[in-house]
């Protein structure tokens, strides 16, 4: 038996396909699958959650545990805002909710609608509104979310995202990507809902004050100060561009013949 030294041809045990090609195929393919899955799930959750009647939702969430939220429980500004919301809600008699306003600390101007009729208002928003009509439009907007039950659908989306993130969380890189993309998706999904909520809000303002003058002044100020000021960033990140929404509201008022001239009501004593 003779030994003849020979080496095998190089590269037999290594696939010749370029790793970047595999990476592209995998990322694009899986991205598409996850996006489809996300849209499908959100759609399903929307349907299921909307089957829950608003009355049942109001009952379940009426005892919402505020301890997990940072709210200013005995703030003197709560009562006047609550009173304004109740006056607006009176123009929506079939509402199944009992609305509850809570003030949150923070400089950013923002307001949120949460399941069960809970409306969160930041101190920053109360600092920045100048008339009752401005505040009424923002509050009416939140009531609009309840009317269209956007808050419950947002809850559905957040649930899907959280579960989705937990499922794929075996790799850190994937989680941060999924989180980010998911957040962006939730936001762009919400834009049409925001517009509808704006319209309902303006309708309530018209019903309450008999005119819509000065209602969107707050948005105009936000728009003027939007450049370079971070305070409004939070509100803008979840709400449509102010220019667009002002134009939309103006068009709605014109179409319905709501008067644009009138004297805005000054803020209640506790809010000034």
């Amino acid at each position: 038996m003779r030994f003849t030294p020979r080496l095998p041809r190089d590269g037999i045990n290594v696939s010749q396909e370029h790793p970047l090609k595999e990476a592209t195929v995998l990322i694009v393919g899986l991205g598409a699958v996850f996006a489809l899955l996300f849209i499908l799930l959100v759609w399903l959750v929307d349907i299921v959650l909307l089957l829950v009647p608003a009355e049942a939702e109001a009952r379940v969430f009426s005892s919402w545990d505020l301890s997990s939220l940072e709210v200013l429980s005995d703030d003197s500004r709560q009562a006047p805002v609550q009173e304004l919301v109740e006056r607006l809600a009176a123009h929506w008699p079939e509402s199944p909710y009992e609305f509850r306003v809570e003030i949150m600390p923070g400089d950013e101007a923002n307001a949120m609608a949460l399941p069960g009729g809970l409306i969160l208002v930041t101190e920053g928003l109360l600092d920045q509104v100048e008339t009752e009509n401005e505040l009424a439009l923002v509050m009416g907007h939140e009531l609009g979310h309840f009317k269209h039950r956007d808050h419950i659908r947002r809850l559905g989306r957040v649930t899907v995202l959280t579960i989705g993130a937990a499922v794929v969380s075996s790799s850190a890189a994937r989680v941060s990507l999924a989180d980010t993309v998911g957040n962006l998706a939730t936001r762009s999904f919400g834009r049409d809902d925001e517009r509808e909520a704006d319209r309902f809000g303006l309708e309530l303002v018209q019903a309450e004050f008999g005119h819509v003058a000065g209602a969107w002044k707050f948005f105009e100020r936000l728009d003027a100060s939007a450049l370079g000021i971070d305070r409004v960033a939070a509100y803008l990140s979840t709400h449509p561009g102010n220019r667009d929404r002002i134009d939309d509201l103006r068009a709605l008022a014109a179409a319905r013949g709501w008067p644009l001239d009138g004297e805005p009501v000054s803020l209640a004593l506790g809010l000034r």
Binding site: M1, T4, L7, P8
Partner: peptide, 12 residues
């Protein structure tokens, strides 16, 4: 009859 050997070969 093995007349010649060349070395180890592998596959994965």
């Amino acid at each position: 009859q093995i007349v010649e050997f060349y070395g180890v070969v592998t596959g994965n």
